[in-house]
């Protein structure tokens, strides 16, 4: 339960960071997150999953504003990705950024 809460919290943080700063806020927040909660379990995974969920939430909000799926299909073609590739890339990208940033600065246990 606590993990789910932490994931949701990081999702909210990464969504807000993206809105008020830019995409690079996601790795910055992930780095701060693991430093702020050094003893938390699965902090790297929490950051990665939370970042993907945060961007996913922003996409859901965008879907209410206009034809997001049409755009996703067009962008997948433009970037020579398989159908749905652009959508997948948008969810995987923040997870990679957050995960890599968290792993980089996570204090070593040894």
């Amino acid at each position: 339960m606590r993990t789910a809460f932490r994931v949701a919290l990081f999702a909210g943080l990464s969504a807000a960071g993206t809105i008020y700063l830019e995409w690079w806020a996601v790795p910055a927040l992930a780095a701060i997150w693991v430093r702020a909660f050094p003893s938390a379990r699965h902090s790297v995974r929490t950051a990665a999953v939370g970042a993907a969920l945060g961007w996913g939430a922003l996409l859901l909000w965008g879907a209410a504003q206009g034809p997001v799926l049409g755009l996703a299909a067009r962008m997948s073609t433009v970037l020579s990705l398989p159908h749905g590739g652009f959508l997948a890339a948008t969810l995987v990208w923040p997870a990679l950024l957050a995960g890599a940033a968290a792993l980089t600065v996570k204090p070593s246990r040894g």
Binding site: T18, I19, E22, W23, W55, L58, L59, G62, V68, L71, M75, F86, A89, T90, W93
Partner: peptide, 8 residues
């Protein structure tokens, strides 16, 4: 890819 101010 930014879902807020990117192509989306």
């Amino acid at each position: 890819l930014d879902p807020w101010r990117g192509a989306w």
